[in-house]
């Protein structure tokens, strides 16, 4: 082995001992009935797939990710577009504002959203003050609230990959399209959007994975009645002390995340090849 390649060994050792090994133990535990790990069984998996309540939590979680990702894309793309068209100095300021939420402590961020979304919170004061609604809106402990907060919290993960692609885009392509008589919208939908697809997909992968696994945000904004997979795993592991079932839930959730990421990644690679052609 060359000297350079050996530099990977410390991290490889750390990951083997403290990442791969725990996941293997997790998988093994999920195939047993109790923590003593005696006698193999598929019981935990059978229990999950035969209980509509269990798998409806998984489906709710996957749909939550889709909603949060779409909202993120709708608002994140224009932000990336604005950053890309700004001068160097303004671009730094905008990127600074964009990464601010992801670096602010997640508990602090969520706390702030409770102040904003609560019954007498900022948003409800504005809504009732403007006479848009007589009753305060229920946002805290609802899915609408969770989607809003997730979209805000994960926005940087969507904006940054799109910005990377947009800032490498050849401006001549847009100019050529306009010179040939295409309007701005047509140029956007036929030229800019397709060429930025690799960035969009990279952004969607990161946002989606982060949204469905966002334990703190889901739990604090969603409350105890809106249950998604991370809270479900936590409740089974710590509340019900049913480690083997919690392990099975973890494995099912991880495999689902990997499948979604894999499919989106494959679409992304295809769009990149098309982009180059």
């Amino acid at each position: 082995m060359e000297a350079d390649s050996r530099l990977v060994l410390p991290l490889a050792a750390l990951f083997t001992a403290f990442f791969v090994a725990p996941l293997v133990v997790l998988l093994l535990l999920s195939l047993h009935g109790d923590i003593a790990m005696q006698g193999w069984t598929l019981g935990n998996y059978v229990k999950f797939f035969s209980d509509p309540f269990s798998y409806s939590i998984l489906i709710d979680t996957l749909l939550l990710g889709v909603k949060a990702t779409l909202v993120c894309l709708l608002f994140g793309y224009p932000v990336a577009w604005l950053c890309a068209s700004a001068g160097a100095r303004w671009q730094s300021v905008l990127v600074f504002l964009v990464i601010l939420p992801i670096l602010t402590s997640v508990v602090v961020r969520t706390f702030s959203w409770i102040v904003i979304l609560g019954r007498q919170g900022l948003l409800n004061q504005i809504v009732t003050g403007l006479g848009l609604s007589n009753e305060p809106l229920r946002l805290l402990y609802t899915e609408v609230g969770v989607v809003m907060v997730l979209a805000q919290v994960q926005m940087p993960l969507m904006v940054l990959p799109i910005l990377t692609v947009l800032s490498k885009l050849d401006p001549n392509l847009g100019d050529a399209s306009r010179v040939l008589g295409a309007g701005e919208w047509r140029t956007f939908f036929r030229i800019t959007l397709p060429l930025s697809l690799p960035g969009i997909i990279a952004g969607c992968i990161l946002t989606y994975a982060a949204s469905i696994t966002a334990f703190v945000t889901q739990t604090l904004i969603g409350g105890a009645r809106l249950i998604y997979m991370p809270l479900n795993i936590y409740q089974q592991a710590v509340g019900a002390n049913n480690w083997p079932f919690a392990a099975a839930l973890s494995i099912i959730f991880m495999i689902t995340v990997m499948i979604v990421v894999g499919v989106l990644g494959a679409i992304g690679r295809r769009s990149e090849i098309h982009g180059r052609a």
């Binding site: 403290f18 990442f19 997790l26 994975a209 334990f215 795993i233 936590y234 990421v261």
Partner: peptide, 13 residues
């Protein structure tokens, strides 16, 4: 990309 909660739980086991 993987759920950190699942990893934390796996590490505890």
């Amino acid at each position: 990309l993987l759920p950190a909660l699942s990893f934390g739980f796996a590490a505890l086991i």
